[in-house]
Design a protein around this nucleic acid. Structure first.
Lengths: 249, 249
DNA sequence: CAAATAGTGTCTTTAAGACACTATGCC
DNA sequence: GGCATAGTGTCTTAAAGACACTATTTG
């Protein structure tokens, strides 16, 4: 970010307004067990906490001393929860109002992340955080306005998947084109034509071959990795129709 | 917004973190004098203020007592500056870091608005706020990181104009299709084909006829207004190519 | 060889681009 | 009539959809 510090002629001081609470939340998606899943955490069950025991999106207050920027804060929270170093991370938007947090006027900056499926280690759901299938997560009574935020994140994800290579960030590399197609189908919830799919992916020039991969039964497939893990490829057309954008607080 | 207030078993209290400053800024676009223009305000020239005398985007601190939500705050600031009641207003994103404001860790929530051209009343630029052509505004040394924010807003606007009816919100109603096409051309900075343009607009079903309009020289044209002033129509394809998305703080 | 999966070819369809054409209003 | 502007028609082109076909690997 480009910022310029002025040379103050006199000490500048912050106004005496009451400051809202500021948090950062992260909607972390993955595809596991043939499902689009989202990472949720259980809030502490202490009475002094808002929404005790409820499930919520991972996140928390900005630490002014620790976080250089909102993005860094989101990265920190993502690493704390998943251990992922360089995931796909983009800003979703912000939600702020007097009523969304019982502790006071609060604004949250929401990011959304795509990560490859974590290893299915031991006891799933035993810890404070767990992966939940998105439709099930949307039906849960999440803390704060996190149900609304999650709905917006899912809408944004599905919307962008129609015309970008985002699902490639949901797979561990190398992956095959049939695997990538399956990921698209899981996220969008509808089957896709193989020929059109392959033409589109290969024409978009965002994949690099990594050599053949055996897959059990049937013919071996070519392995691929994405060329640029920072940004998604944008296709010239959507797969079908695009949704209408919605407004936020 | 849907929010649920829990019945707290004990008084919930906000944590003792240092709270960042929170502001809302609005990027207000219009098309005037055949140019895409943005509204800028001059910051007070008092030494105790950051960036004294510099041009900046309109905005300011959240007023926890006055603003029910971020969106309401953006609406309020827009009305204060332009008097517009029901403009097109959508969230652009948020920028926050330790370094962007000399007064301390500060996060701003940025909205972007599209308004019809204001009447060219009296002395343009005499007051604290003035309309500036966007490329000129981008070359100015704006306060804070507002140059970066403005660049992101222009990129988002140009990006969405490729596949939505957004420019319709830059005109006062009723308007003609040639006027709408001219607005697209001004925003995108390139000529468009009349036939393809008209087919696309009429096929998208977002316009209602309002009767003929005389336009000086030449044949009279049909007048139109948009059916839904809350949201833009989305076209099945972009006009040409789409840009790659960029990241923010 | 059969089953399973990977990958290709061909035709259709949709909507944009190019560009020439017709229509209507004012002088 | 002539000019200016509004509006239409026709052909081409880019890329998605449908769907049948070929290719390669394992048992």
């Amino acid at each position: 970010m480009v910022t310029r510090k002025p040379t103050p002629r006199a000490p500048v001081h912050a106004p005496d307004f009451e400051r809202p609470l500021v948090t950062v939340d992260v909607v972390i998606f993955t595809v596991r067990d043939e499902q689009l899943q989202v990472l949720l955490v259980r809030r502490p069950d202490t009475a002094s906490d808002p929404f005790p025991g409820r499930m919520a999106l991972p996140g928390g207050f900005i630490n002014v001393a620790l976080d250089a920027s909102l993005y860094d804060c989101a990265l920190r929270k993502l690493e704390e929860k998943t251990g992922f170093e360089a995931p796909y991370l983009e800003q979703l938007g912000s939600w702020g109002s007097a009523s969304r947090d019982p502790r006071g006027w609060c604004a949250t900056h929401v990011y959304f992340a795509l990560v490859p499926p974590p290893p299915n280690d031991g006891a799933p759901g035993s810890e404070a955080s767990q992966w939940v299938e998105v439709e099930a997560a949307l039906r849960k009574r999440l803390a704060f306005d996190h149900a609304e935020i999650l709905a917006a994140a899912v809408e944004r994800l599905r919307g962008k998947v129609e015309y970008t290579s985002l699902p490639a960030f949901l797979l561990s590399e190398p992956f095959t084109l049939p695997q990538l197609q399956r990921t698209y189908e899981i996220v969008l919830g509808r089957p896709m034509d193989k020929s059109a799919f392959r033409k589109r992916m290969l024409d978009a020039q965002f994949l690099a071959e990594t050599g053949s991969i055996e897959g059990g039964a049937g013919r071996t497939a070519m392995g691929y990795r994405v060329l640029d893990r920072e940004r998604a490829a944008v296709f010239p057309r959507t797969f079908r129709a695009i949704e209408t954008p919605s407004s936020r607080d």
